[in-house]
Simulated assay, not measured.
Amino acid sequence: LMAATRRHFTLVEGGEYSIEVDPRKVDQATVVLLGELGFNRMSVGVQDFDAGVQQAVNRVQSEEETRAVIDAARNSGFKSVSVDLIYGLPRQTVAGFDRTLERVIDASPDRVSIYNYAHLPSLFKPQRRILEADMPSADTRLQILALAIQRMTEAGYVFIGMDHFAKPDDELAIAQRQGRLHRNFQGYSTHSDCDLLAFGISSISKVGPTYCQNVKTLDEYYDLLDNGTLPVYRGIELNADDLLRRSIIQSLMCHFELSIESIEIAHLIDFRKYFATELDELQEMVDAGLVRVDDRWITVLPRGRMLVRAISMVFDRYLRADRQRTRYSKVI
C-alpha cells in the first residue's frame, strides 16, 4: 500500500504519516518495518485496561504488550505516539477507568484520545452480545469524562477539547495556543481546511465544499473500480448555510470561543437575527454557567468545555428535528 501511494503521490519530506495499530497483532519487528516504510506517527488502540471491561467487549489486551509496542515505536524513531481510550463501555466504572488512566499516564504518550462509546446494536451485530444492564449510566459516563480531564491535566497534558489531550510541546497544543487548530470529521488537526482523499470501503473524502463516501462492501468496491468507476455511493455539496454553521462549530470546538463580528463580516449576516432561535436555546447553557454570550463573543467557560460538543450542536440545523440527540445524556 505504501509503495502504491508513493507511485501516485509525492510524499513531503518530514510530513506526518500516521498509522493505527492493534497491539495484539503487531510485534517489535512489525513496528520497525512500519518505520522503514515511512510511518512516523502511531496511534495505539487500548480502550480500557480493566479486565472485566475487556472481557465484556471481547478485546483482551495486556498492559505489557501495549507498552512493548509503544517502546518499539519510540526506539524506531516515531516522533509521536498516541493512545486511544473509550469511555462508556460495558462494566466500566469510575474507579476502574481511574486505574487505566494511571497506567496510560505512566506510559507517557504524546497524545491521548478518549472517545465516547456509541452503542448501536441495530447497526453493529457484535454489540448485540452486550447486555444493556452492563452499560454505565449517563451520570457515570459524565463522571468518567470529568475524571479523565482532571487526571490528564494534572499530569501536565493540555485539554485540546472534546476528546483529545496533548503534551504542551505537541503540535496540537501549540496550534491551539496560536489559534491554528482545525477539526475535521477525523478529529483535531494542525492543518487548515484542506482536501482529504479516502481510499477503501466506507471511507469518506472531502474536496472543497463537498463530501463523498465510498460503498460499504469489498465486492462492490472492486467491481466499480474494475469498470473504471469511482466507488462512491453518496455525497453532499455544502450550501452557504452549511459553510456558515461549519465555521461556527469549528471555532467553538477548536478555540472555545467565537467572534460574532468576524462571522458577520465573513458571511454578510446579522448574527443575532440569523441565529435568534439558536441563541434562545443557548440561554439554558448560559444559565448553567457553561457559556457566556455578550455583544461581541460567545465563549465556552471552563466548566462547559467537556460539553463543547453539546454546545456546538445547538448550531447544527440537521439535528434540530431530533431533539433527543441534543440532550447531555446522549452526548455523554
Rank of each mutant, 00 (worst) to 15 (best):
L1Y: 07
E13R: 06
E13Q: 12
G14Q: 12
G14T: 11
E20T: 07
D27E: 13
T30G: 07
V60N: 09
Q61D: 11
E64I: 09
I70F: 02
D71W: 02
A73G: 08
R74K: 10
K79C: 14
V83W: 02
G88S: 09
P90W: 01
Q92V: 04
V94A: 14
F97A: 01
A107V: 12
N116Y: 06
P121A: 00
S122G: 00
R128D: 08
R129C: 11
L131Y: 05
L131K: 14
L142S: 11
A146H: 05
M152L: 10
G156P: 01
G156L: 01
I160E: 14
N184A: 01
T190F: 00
D193S: 02
I201E: 09
I204D: 10
Y222F: 11
L224C: 05
N227V: 00
N227K: 05
N227I: 04
L230F: 01
G235Y: 02
I236G: 11
I236E: 13
N239D: 15
D241P: 01
L243S: 08
L244R: 06
Q250F: 05
L252P: 00
S259G: 11
I260T: 14
I265F: 02
R272M: 12
E278Y: 00
D280I: 05
D280T: 08
D287A: 07
V314W: 00
A321P: 02
A321H: 03
T326P: 04
